[in-house]
Design a protein around this nucleic acid. Sequence first.
RNA 1: GCUGGGUUCGUCUAACGGUUAGGACUCAAGAUUUUCAUUCUUGCAAUAGGGGUUCGAUUCCCCUACCCAGUACCA
Length: 518
Amino acid sequence: MEQRKVRVRFAPSPTGALHMGGMRTALYNYLFAKQHGGDFILRIEDTDSNRFVPGAEEYIIECLKWCGVMPDEGVDENGKVVETPSEKHPHAPYRQSQRKPLYRQYAEELVKNGFAYYAFDTPEEIDAVRKEYEATGRTFIYNHTNRMNFKTSLNMDQSEVERRLREENHWTVRFKNPQDRVIKMHDLIRGDIEMNTSTLDDKVLWKAADQLPTYHLANIVDDHLMEVTHVIRGEEWLPSLPLHYMLYEAFGWQDTQPEFAHLSLLLKPDGKGKLSKRDGDRLGFPVFPLRWTAPSGEVSRGYREDGYYPEAFVNLIALLGWNPGIEQELFSLEELTKLFALERVIKSGARFNPDKAKWFNQEYLRRRTDKQLAQEFRPLLREHGIRDEQFSDCYVETVVSLIKERAHFVNEFWDLSSFFFEAPSEYDSAAKKKHWKEEMIPAVKEVAALVIASDDFSAEHLEHLIHNHIEQNALPMGKIMNMLRISLVGASKGPGVANIIALIGKEEFERRINKALC
RNA sequence: GCUGGGUUCGUCUAACGGUUAGGACUCAAGAUUUUCAUUCUUGCAAUAGGGGUUCGAUUCCCCUACCCAGUACCA
């Protein structure tokens, strides 16, 4: 086989918000494509009109954009799915619903060559048979064992078939699954897999009712037409891999059949089963990259809105089920692109750990400059009624430098630093109970007076000044400092007292001390 | 049920068939400190069970258990 340019695709259905597991699949596709200098394609698999959810497609693209893994093909510069072919997007349209006319000929080709047949039973009729099987404790599989009992082109006259094809509009094309054939498959992550076709069913490939293919047909046809070389998708597709192998064979496309890699699923942090939207609500973390408002009006939180940096989010999902085998844990998208290897993707499902997710964000937050953090903090300050002109950039940057070590997210900054912007309106009762000693008030007043008398208001000098005084007068350091802190902050928290005094300035210091001590 | 996939500390994971089974998150303790944090140090904690193969098994094979997925005219 000649070396083909690597082409991978991410092919979501627009049936709702993109789950973080889906985002991880997209990420791995992107990393694989970029590592091999290949193309990353987006294709929308909307062959089930009943499950279409407005806004889902835009949402998915927005997620890819936020994570910095925009496809090369299938989406234009404006983030719209491409509908007409061009040099950059030669296989348009990239929405399967718009490729509708294309699939029927492929389905018919399979019938013509004996790999598929027309089936005329309605879903209700088949369902009735299924129930009958179940009632007698048998497993119903629509395949060689019973297909001759149904109304199909395999057991009726050509003229009857043609009449029904013409007059009825609920028939389907089904794959004629062979009996007792062992399909040998290969998965880039799992290695060799074998499956006997006898356990498989005659899957519907095309439906006359809506003139659309099902996933299996559309997927194989489009991957072939779009020259996809590697299919990296979720584990839920592994059971249909033999069907896909047989379809490539039936079409005579084995030479260009893509390689497959099936990714394990993301599991809930506790209990059993795969991670779902409900777990996020229940355990208090997002399962979607971005906030999602369902058509019902129900809102689900997103990593972006919860304050995660996209770099942190990408980093954490990249490491959920893959690692490069070195002890480093923080990687940029570029590093991930260099290091990624399908061979190192973990076969078992990864349980998501919200604590570790927070840790990743904290690490990225620490890597930001004070200037960047101050800028990110401004909108929050405005929300709390602090206008930009009230405090200089320099002031906000200094505040940030003093409190950032304590935060996992920028959205924690206000709680950590509000006292730099406004005087405490009340004093934390627990802190007061623990540290507030009436008998020490005169001593605290003495220290305050000393501070007010100082011309040098640098943190270093103030620190020196206060410490010297306390030591020389043999005063209790802890008591004095904590009372000063409560007076200034209103609680038992925050950076060094001297730092706080230096930043809020003499006048504000005096005001707060007077209020607290009298 | 059937078919397929999977199973190393609580979690994410590392370990050419030879390691005191390593790291990270969480948690605990100690040190530092004027508070809360940070930081540093230390600690707790795992090869699902049973058989083989082998001088030697987390690693290879088999069985059992458990988990996950699929079993739709959904993807």
